[in-house]
Amino acid sequence: MNRIALPILMAVFLVSCSGPPKIRPLIGQFPSQFAKTYPLVFPEGDRRFVHAIEADLYGGEKAFMMGVTHIDSEKNKIHSILMTIEGLVLFDAESDGEIRINRAVAPFDSENFAGGLMGDVRLMFFRPEGDQVESGLTEAGSWIRRFRNREETTDIVIHQDGSRTIRQYHRNRLRRSIHAGSDQGPGGAKFPETLTLNAYIRSGYSLHLKLVEAEPAPATR
């Protein structure tokens, strides 16, 4: 194990050991700022995004790609394409519950990779499955809503500056976190310009996404 991998593994272990934070009850209703920001966390309807993706991989490797994502929240559908900066498509898959891989170039050609990627996209863009079980304030004073679906707990946290964090726990161990900046994307898009995903798993990784384009739903185009 190299010198970079060990500290990463230790950090992943320490972070993933922390369970969901305590929620302080909020007296009264959620402030209007929360109400304004919350609907923007998960885009409604038919949307297409192009992101520049920077991946920090296990062992200190780095990779750069372009990602094209089509989501349809009503139909629960995802179509995801990863390509090189030169435009060569490395991975093309769709999911509507079942995953169909249209094209995959090694090392992106495993079912595990496809499943992990679709899971990450779903966590970024779709409302969590399950019921809301708690809501209130975090210790730091951010607004939080907690959803639970069997062994999975998902927290949606909206910070005072408008940025938001999504944390996903499995059996109370942190598995993924996503931080979305408060900056708006290019062209007046109502979506964050930056998204950072951290996967706290054995071969942990981080993805830094920068919004290049956001296409509106066809009906509003």
Binding site: L88, I101, R103, A106, D109
Partner: peptide, 12 residues
């Protein structure tokens, strides 16, 4: 599923 493993991404 259409997969291609002969060429690495770098080579492609």
């Amino acid at each position: 599923m259409k997969t291609v493993s002969t060429y690495s991404p770098a080579r492609i």
